[in-house]
Amino acid sequence: MKSHDGMTLIVKTVTRLSVWLIILYGLYIILHGHLTPGGGFGGGVVIALAFLNVLLAFGHKFTGEWLKIPLLEKLESGSTLLFMLVGLLGIFYAGSFLANYIIKGSLYHLFSAGTIPLLNIIIGVKVAMSLFLVVWVMAAFKIEEEEEQ
């Protein structure tokens, strides 16, 4: 059994049960970023760690089919563009770049604070995708190296 085929059946079963809970926790941290500690940066890393968990447990090949790496790459570069788009819309609606132009809502509610949750989600996607892609490419590089020897 090669090292990049994944781990044992026990690890795979536990991962299959727990990975969605980890992703749910990451989404919770991202969506509640304007109310509680956390936000896009922390939640993004939690989601990247969930994907990394799948990569370590199931191996390189399965993860590549499950996650659709080209889609992740498009999300990674597209989120930067989306951030700028949200900022540019601020010029038209409120008169300045990255202005908070959506209705503020009332304090302590989930749907409040205007553009802040939106930007939190964009940053979360950005951080999660970019950090996972680094580990993914590193693993692919290692496999190529092993094949050459």
């Binding site: 936000g39 940066f41 951080v127 970019s130 950090l131 680094v134 490419v137 590193m138 590089f141």
Partner: peptide, 20 residues
Amino acid sequence: VLTSIVIELGITALLVALAV
């Protein structure tokens, strides 16, 4: 500092890639 932590990890990843 919140942004600086993230940049630091990105730089660490770049350095690790170069070292590898």
